[in-house]
């Protein structure tokens, strides 16, 4: 099934670094093909020309951190047929969700010269906590291959191939040698959602979980193996507290080691 009229695409930003939006601009070779197929109606990162909604597909980057954000995302939802969240901020609260583990007011007074100007929510939360989300694309940042896959699938009315199993499956399909087994490097691959094609282990680094939890993560078993590899409690907490710190399985695991 091909949609006759060019679908209208909007790209929205909340609390984030813009890296995921850049993945779209990073589709250099495919960018023309994208603009031939979709009508980019709202994309401030690329152009200040904006067109009104409703939009056929909205890509949403960033987490919700202010009351203003809460209202804005609801409006975007009302104006979008399909809402796809992109990246760790939008799907899990992002690196800024590290503040969720403390009282936000403690940070405000440390960071800002005039804290009274800051209006913020207690916690940085994912989009799905506020509005229904049709699809989530993981990663910090997302990878353009997956973004193109989701757009292509949408354009042709098929299900996108974005499996939620572990990074290990992608890693082994590349015939990488497991860095944890062969070098004792702590790797979050076994509990992390696939999609990056095991990029870090391919460069001899442990996975740091930027795609967030896989479908059935056994973080308890993995962190006890980390202990055996010599990671102390603080380091286990840090390992789980990065870009997806507030994704529930990672949050619970880090909290278990904080006690």
């Amino acid at each position: 099934m091909t949609i006759k009229r060019k679908p209208k695409l909007a790209i929205w930003k909340f609390a984030s670094c813009d890296g995921c939006q850049l993945s779209l601009l990073d589709c250099e070779d495919e960018l023309l093909a994208i603009t031939n197929r979709v009508d980019i109606a709202y994309f401030l990162e690329a152009t200040s020309t904006v067109r009104k909604g409703p939009y056929d597909i909205s890509l949403v980057e960033g987490s919700i951190t202010t009351q203003h954000d809460v209202k804005r995302i609801q409006k975007i939802r009302q104006n979008s047929k399909l809402l796809v969240t992109i990246g760790a901020c939008a799907t899990a609260g992002g690196i800024q969700a590290l503040r969720n583990f403390k009282n936000v007011n403690d940070f405000i007074s440390l960071v800002y010269a005039k804290p009274q100007y800051i209006e913020t929510l207690d916690k940085s939360t994912p989009i799905a906590n506020h509005v229904p989300v049709d699809y989530e694309l993981r990663g910090c940042p997302i990878n353009k291959r997956q973004l193109l896959e989701v757009l292509s699938a949408f354009l042709h009315g098929r299900k996108p191939n974005t499996p939620s199993y572990s990074v290990c499956i992608e890693c082994k399909r590349r015939f990488n040698v497991c860095v944890m087994v062969s070098c004792g490097i702590p790797c979050l691959g076994p509990v992390t959602h696939a999609g990056c094609n095991a990029i870090c282990p391919s460069y001899h680094r442990g996975c740091y979980g930027c795609y967030g939890p896989m479908e059935t993560p056994n973080t308890t078993s993995l962190s006890s193996q980390f202990s055996q590899l010599g990671l102390d409690k603080d380091n286990i907490v840090r390992t789980f507290r990065t870009f997806n710190a507030y994704a529930e399985p990672f949050r619970k695991e880090s909290e278990a080691y904080e006690k």
Partner: peptide, 13 residues
């Protein structure tokens, strides 16, 4: 099951 990561490494190797 408490220990298994369901990561699939065993089946891959």
């Amino acid at each position: 099951a408490k220990r298994c990561l369901t990561c699939a490494n065993c089946t891959m190797v």
